[in-house]
Amino acid sequence: MNIYPWIGLAVAVLTLWKCQVFTKVILPAAVGLVVICLWQLACDHFLSDTNPTPGQTLAAIFEIDDNGRLWSDAAASLFRVTWGFFLAALVGIPLGLWVGWTTRGFQALNPIIQALRPISPIAWIPFAILWFGIGDGAGIFLIFYASFFPITVGTMAAVRNISMVHQRSALNFGLTGFELFRRVVLPAALPQIITSMRIALGVAWLVIVAAEMVGMDSGLGYLINDARNMGRRYDLVAATMVIIGAIGIVLDLLIRKFEDFDEVRWGYVKR
């Protein structure tokens, strides 16, 4: 075997080792390629023919796109996640701020919040369907429930973690009432609130798929179930999974944009 190409490759890797294009694009892409190759190898040698290969999965993505279900089902899932998440933030952030800041509020509401929090949103599916029927209402309710606790608890913790020196600075300069809230409580808590929203959106995207598989007649979760039930189309199942992952990444990238504002950037710097 000729050793020189390998030496050349090693030299190239070492030169590129710290370069941005390499660390951010080439290296992760290479790992992704290796995973896809392993998948192909597994299909070739170990798995039954029912398992889709990477190529079949790619073809299935185009098939879903062609018959229009990619957009209609993705839109259905995104619609439920958007509304449920938005409503959860709308209720959870103010509630978390209030419960975090006031002793009485904390004493009154923290126990019930902690009691409801460990109940999986999936467990609520029967009641969601009972109350809202099969459709968007139930989905929005479940997403609301799934995102509400990460957001509320995260916001509460953010407020309760406001550092002593900042509280004392605020006291020292006579900040009270709304001014104290606007100048200290909210800005101090904001980085952690954004982090909790990020976590909540991730959970919401996990939950919507499960909810649609069990109790809805549209959406990406329903598409997975449909593909399996209607003809054991595992290529369509895998294709939908890839789409779910891709949309999840995009959602996370979008919400991370909030972390770039000058007012919150301090909260993400290692100290």
């Binding site: 006291l171 020292n172 006579g174 100048r183 800005p187 904001l190 007012e263 301090w266």
Partner: peptide, 17 residues
């Protein structure tokens, strides 16, 4: 506390935001 007598802290009391 009052702003007639002001504290300077060791651990940076200024607001990072």
């Amino acid at each position: 506390p009052s702003d007639r007598r002001v504290f300077v802290f060791q651990e940076y009391g200024i607001f990072p935001w």
